[in-house]
Nucleic acid binder design. Structure first.
Length: 299
DNA sequence: GTCCAGGACTCGC
DNA sequence: GCGAGTCATGGA
């Protein structure tokens, strides 16, 4: 097994345990398993299931493949490595954000406390949309339950090391699914329609990460996304933040953000939308990072 | 019973 | 363009 160890270098200011703490926030998370500091998950690499565990390492992140589920060849290793880099946003220089954290009164404490944390992403576009839509207007805890039902109903499981690892259902499969099948999982009728609509767009190839990146900036991407049924400003910014990796996306309507701001600013009520925007003005360029760090106040 | 959760759509004006 | 009603479930 030792020869299947892969070390992914990370910047000096990266702290794996901060990301781990975020990843551990729900016992109902179904896309990976965390045990003793190692996050283990399955990944589809060119149609082949790969299963790997990642953990902290003095030089960054150690990736170890489970027996029988290593990628075939160097190219496969590169894809896993690229996935992890994307997942934990390893290629971003956070020094400007940390400078901001030094001077900003609202961010100061939380940035100091969780320094080393990166915006944990969701590299797969379809998975991000499903997760965001499921999360609209309900508690995160219930969203995890719905995602678990969704994945265990429509996804595929890989058996490795005596355990099951799930691969998120692809858009093609959901595109041809009846809304009633989602409704049975207690996903609302509307959300079921939204999810199937998005699945069709992705399956048809009209909605891809590449196409969205080609639009060039957050504003145009948000406009494109909010034209899709079921995607409002909150969801568009959520997708920008978690999948398209905009460091500046700002889900201003986010209730969790409001509660975090209330706490950080010492208010006796939640801020209104104007205040939420005003708080974020000094964070221009880093509003997604600010949001992600502020969310850590909720746990 | 009421209110609130990581919102968005629809309708009436 | 803006406010109110609706969607639906589960926990406090």
């Amino acid at each position: 097994m030792r020869d299947e160890l892969l070390v992914i270098p990370a910047p000096e200011d990266f702290i794996f345990d901060e990301c781990l703490a975020y990843l551990m926030r729900s016992a109902d998370e179904c896309m990976f398993r965390i045990n003793d500091g190692t996050v283990t998950r399955a990944l589809d690499v060119d149609g082949e299931p790969v299963v790997f565990g990642m953990s902290g390492h003095p030089d960054g992140i150690a990736v170890e493949f489970l027996e029988g589920f290593a990628p075939g060849g160097l190219e496969g290793c590169d894809k896993v490595s690229g996935f992890v880099r994307d997942w934990l946003d390893l290629d971003r220089d956070l020094r400007p954000f940390y400078e901001l954290g030094e001077s900003d009164p609202l961010l100061h404490d939380v940035v100091q406390k969780h320094r080393g944390l990166r915006v944990v992403g969701i590299p797969d576009l379809f998975e991000t949309f499903v997760w965001a839509i499921l999360g609209q207007q309900i508690t995160v805890a219930f969203a995890y339950v719905l995602k678990k039902r969704f994945v265990e109903t429509f996804g595929t499981a890989v058996e490795a090391g005596g355990r099951k690892y799930w691969i998120f259902p692809d858009a093609q499969k959901i595109a041809g699914t009846d809304p009633d099948a989602l409704r049975e999982l207690k996903i609302t009728g509307r959300k079921s329609e939204y999810i199937i609509g998005i699945a069709r767009m992705i399956a048809d190839g009209e909605l891809t990460k590449e196409r969205l990146f080609e639009l060039g900036n957050d504003k145009l991407i948000q406009k494109e996304l909010t034209a899709i049924r079921g995607i409002g400003p909150w969801t568009a910014n959520y997708v920008l933040m978690r999948c398209l990796r905009s460091p500046d996306a700002y889900p201003a309507a986010d209730v969790g953000l409001h509660n975090a701001l209330k706490h950080a600013a010492g208010l006796d009520r939640k801020p209104n939308l104007q205040e939420v925007e005003a708080f974020a003005a000094p964070w221009a360029g880093w509003r997604a990072y600010a949001t992600f760090y502020l969310w850590r106040l909720l746990h």
